[in-house]
């Protein structure tokens, strides 16, 4: 042991430790404060991301053929189930179109350009996932060049799955809702109850054991029931309003018994992503 920690080695170890902690704290500070990483890091990420797509191509091809086969086996049952849904959907779609047109006309009359619900979608492929248990993070193949900005919400399937945490020129990192870090999950949401009342709040965490999103610090006396829909409220930042988050799974009080704590079942499976949509808000942003 004496031999291992000779003077020279000890100095090297301590210097390495200091440099390591320094680098970590600087990069976390930059990540929290600035909207884009330093230019060198951005350039490195872009180059690495470019080759990533080339290597990912055969892997996704292989996976596609395997899942294609298993999908084929399930086609019949799925078809039966979907037929029922399609008729219902057609009706909703027509109604939606009519409402949308009406909405546009009314907005024109009021001389409103973009309200909080307007967003333009940017579709992106997931090219890699961070191989770490501490950061539930994926890398997508669209970046600043496609209009993606930090903190924009990311959707998949019918609901929200996370937010953009780092933007490079041609790729960006997306922090998923299941992330337990202290800077994540601060989405402003609103719950619409069955009686039409709304309750505003902020998502505060994620329960990994039950796969539920948690929303704390709700002091409203409005009665929230299981199955009530939760959507983004569009208050603050670059988040559009009306993005579906999930449905209320259970309600209770927090550890101190003062405010109520609401568990939300996410609208989509957060861990399974291949194509995602970044929602770019069209109304003016506040940050």
């Amino acid at each position: 042991m004496n031999k291992f920690f000779s003077n020279r080695r000890l100095v090297i170890v301590i210097v390495c430790l200091i440099v390591s902690f320094g680098l970590m704290s600087v990069s976390v500070a930059i990540r929290n404060k600035r909207s884009t990483p330093p230019l060198v890091q951005q350039f490195g990420n872009d180059v690495v991301g470019l080759v990533n797509r080339v290597v990912a191509w055969p892997v996704s091809g292989l996976k596609g053929s395997v899942t294609g086969f298993s999908d084929l086996m399930n086609t019949y049952q799925e078809n039966q189930r979907l037929k029922g849904q399609v008729q219902e959907l057609a009706q909703t779609k027509v109604h939606d179109q009519a409402v949308n047109q009406e909405n546009q006309k009314l907005k024109k009359e009021l001389k409103l350009n973009h309200s909080l619900t307007d967003y333009s979608p940017v579709t992106a492929n997931v090219i890699a996932r961070t191989p770490s248990a501490w950061q539930n993070q994926v890398i997508i193949d669209k970046g600043e060049a496609a209009g993606v900005k930090k903190n924009m919400p990311v959707l998949s399937g019918s609901g929200i799955v996370g937010r953009v945490s780092e933007v490079n020129r041609t790729n960006s990192k997306v922090e998923l809702l299941s992330n337990s870090s202290e800077s994540a999950n601060r989405f402003a949401v609103t719950i619409t109850t069955k009686s039409g009342k709304t309750v505003n709040g902020i998502l505060s965490g994620y329960n990994h054991d039950k796969n539920l999103i948690e929303m704390g610090n709700v002091t409203s006396k409005t009665k929230i029931q299981k199955g009530d829909k939760v959507a983004t409220s569009g208050l603050g930042g670059v988040m559009p309003a009306g993005l579906f988050v999930g449905k209320v799974a259970s309600t209770g009080t927090d550890n101190y018994g003062l405010a109520s704590k609401i568990s939300i079942k996410p609208a989509t499976n957060i861990s399974e992503l291949s194509v995602v949509t970044v929602a770019v808000r069209q109304a003016q942003t506040t940050n």
Partner: peptide, 24 residues
């Protein structure tokens, strides 16, 4: 590259909450 790509291609197998297999 395979470390990241395998995680993205097989998320159900590698990252079924609460367990997380990190590929090294």
């Amino acid at each position: 590259y395979l470390d990241g790509i395998l995680g993205a291609a097989f998320p159900r197998q590698l990252f079924s909450a609460p367990y997380a297999m990190s590929s090294y």
